[in-house]
Amino acid sequence: MFQIAKTLISEEIIENDFVCNLSACKGACCVDGASGAPLEDDETIILADIFDEVRPFLREEGIKVIEEQGAFVKGDDGEWETPLVNNRECAYVVFADNGITKCGLEEAYNSGATNWKKPISCHMYPIRIREYTEFTAVNYHKWEICDPACSLGNELQIPIYKFVKEALVRKFGEKWYAELEEVANEHTK
Results as ranks from 00 to 15, higher is better:
Gly75Glu: 01
Ile9His: 05
Asp147Pro: 00
Asp97Ala: 15
Met124Asn: 01
Lys102Trp: 02
Arg59Tyr: 09
Tyr177Leu: 08
Pro83His: 06
Leu152Gln: 09
Tyr132Met: 13
Glu81Ala: 12
Ala28Tyr: 04
Val65Arg: 11
Glu166Pro: 00
Thr133Asn: 13
Gln3Leu: 02
Val19His: 01
Glu174Met: 08
Tyr125Ile: 02
Glu11Cys: 11
Glu181Gln: 14
Gly173Arg: 05
Leu47Asp: 04
Val183Tyr: 11
Gly99His: 02
Asn115Gln: 13
Thr136Leu: 05
Ala5Cys: 06
Lys118Ile: 07
Thr133Ala: 15
Tyr161Glu: 05
Glu68Gly: 04
Phe51Asn: 04
Glu186Trp: 09
Gln3Pro: 01
Val94His: 00
Gly70Met: 08
Ala137Pro: 01
Gly153Thr: 10
Glu12Ala: 14
Glu15Lys: 14
Cys150Met: 12
Met1Trp: 08
Arg128Tyr: 03
Ile66Gly: 08
Ile9Ser: 07
Pro38Arg: 10
Glu67Phe: 06
Val138Pro: 06
Lys162Val: 15
Thr133Met: 12
Asn110Tyr: 10
Ala24Leu: 03
Val54Pro: 11
Leu105Arg: 05
Glu40Ser: 10
Cys146Thr: 03
Phe18Asn: 03
Leu39Lys: 02
Arg170Gln: 12
Ile129Gln: 05
Gly62Met: 04
Ile145Val: 10
Tyr177Thr: 05
Val31Gln: 12
Ala137Arg: 10
Arg170Asn: 13
Lys162Phe: 11
Trp143Asp: 06
Phe135Lys: 14
Phe72Ser: 15
Glu43Leu: 02
Glu79Cys: 11
Ile63Asn: 06
Gln69Leu: 15
Asp41Thr: 13
Glu53His: 11
Pro126Met: 02
Gly75Trp: 05
Pro126Ser: 01
Lys171Asn: 04
Ser10Asp: 15
Val164Leu: 03
Glu155His: 11
Arg59Asn: 14
Val164Gly: 03
Tyr125Pro: 01
Ile63Tyr: 05
Cys30Phe: 06
Ile120Ser: 04
Asn16Cys: 08
Val169Phe: 01
Glu61Asp: 15
Glu186Tyr: 11
Lys175Pro: 00
Asp42Ser: 13
Cys122Ala: 05
His187Glu: 10
Asp97Lys: 15
Ile127Cys: 00
Gln157Ile: 13
Ala113Asn: 05
Phe2Lys: 10
Asp52Gly: 04
Val85Pro: 02
Ser121Pro: 01
Glu186Asn: 14
Asp49Met: 12
Asp147Leu: 11
Thr114Met: 09
Asn87Gln: 13
Lys171His: 07
Asp147Phe: 01
Phe72Glu: 03
Cys29Met: 02
Trp143Phe: 04
Thr7Lys: 15
Tyr109Cys: 07
Ile66Met: 09
Ile63Gly: 07
Glu61Trp: 06
Tyr125Ala: 00
Ser10Leu: 05
Glu182Arg: 12
Glu67Tyr: 03
Gly33Gln: 02
Ile66Asp: 06
Ala34Cys: 02
Tyr161Leu: 06
Ser35Cys: 06
